[in-house]
């Protein structure tokens, strides 16, 4: 990610200079930064709502129940996570919400799943296999009805907007399955740094106090924010 971040920014400036669009590139920093904060702020309300609802779902056993139903599938996809962990239930609900096009609900639920997965993660800064699998499922973007696309088609007076549903469904299903398989293949060739493993049980790892403080969850993460 370091190379990609560096590459994107330096490349943009060089190409922008060649194309004579340097002012646009510089201006886009301001616009992009503003937009990021806008997106994050707009998430607060709906995030709070769904985190609240999902907390009830967790406490009342709904999440656990869903985890049990889909156990045969998740056992294979998320083999490092205990099958009755709340993470599994949240992953299933994240998938269902995505499939139904309920993005507003899917994102907070997906984040809850990530927080649950983080509890099982050995190295708190590095993505675990289970996290990569969840992200593969989400970046593939499986959904039953492409609602926004259909809305645009209806807007321009497309006679039969439903005819794109079947091809889209086929493509998105194919992509989803491929992404899951790809994640499994990559997993085999990209082992988690096991060298870090013995460090965690050690109360005072040589890496500094950051590692042990990280061991808990979101709360410690929050304090860490400034140091990164």
């Amino acid at each position: 990610m370091n190379y990609i971040f560096y590459g994107l920014i330096v490349l943009s400036i060089i190409i922008g200079a060649i194309n004579g669009k340097l002012p646009d590139v510089v201006n886009s920093i301001l616009i992009g930064a503003g937009k990021s904060v806008q997106i994050a702020l707009s998430l607060i309300g709906i995030m709070a709502f769904w985190l609240g609802i999902m907390k009830i779902a967790e406490k009342s056993g709904v999440v656990e129940f869903i985890a049990k139903i889909i156990k045969p599938i998740t056992k294979r996809l998320f083999n490092e996570i205990p099958p009755e962990d709340p993470a599994i239930g949240n992953i299933a609900m994240n998938f269902s919400a995505n499939a139904l096009g309920l993005t507003n609900a899917a994102t907070p639920i997906g984040i809850m799943a990530m927080q649950d997965l983080q509890k099982h993660n050995v190295n708190k800064k590095t993505a675990s296999n289970a996290m990569c699998m969840l992200l593969a499922m989400n970046t593939a973007g499986f959904q039953l009805i492409p609602a926004t696309v259909i809305a645009v088609l209806v807007g321009i007076g497309y006679k039969n907007p439903t005819e794109i549903i079947a091809p889209t469904l086929f493509v998105t299903s194919f992509t989803f399955v491929s992404a899951v398989i790809l994640a499994k293949i990559f997993q085999r060739f990209s082992p988690v740094q096991t060298a870090e493993l013995p460090l965690t049980p050690n109360p005072s790892p040589p890496r500094g106090e950051g590692e042990t403080r990280n061991a808990n969850s979101l709360f410690t993460k929050q304090e860490q924010g400034g140091e990164q």
């Binding site: 990610m1 984040i111 996290m131 992200l135 491929s178 992404a179």
Partner: peptide
């Protein structure tokens, strides 16, 4: 969004899977 929410900075192969998809 997903990695940011839990403070993950090393994405491993997640980006490649997403782009290949």
């Amino acid at each position: 969004v997903y990695f940011g929410a839990v403070g993950i900075t090393k994405f491993r192969y997640a980006l490649w899977v997403g782009l290949l998809a």
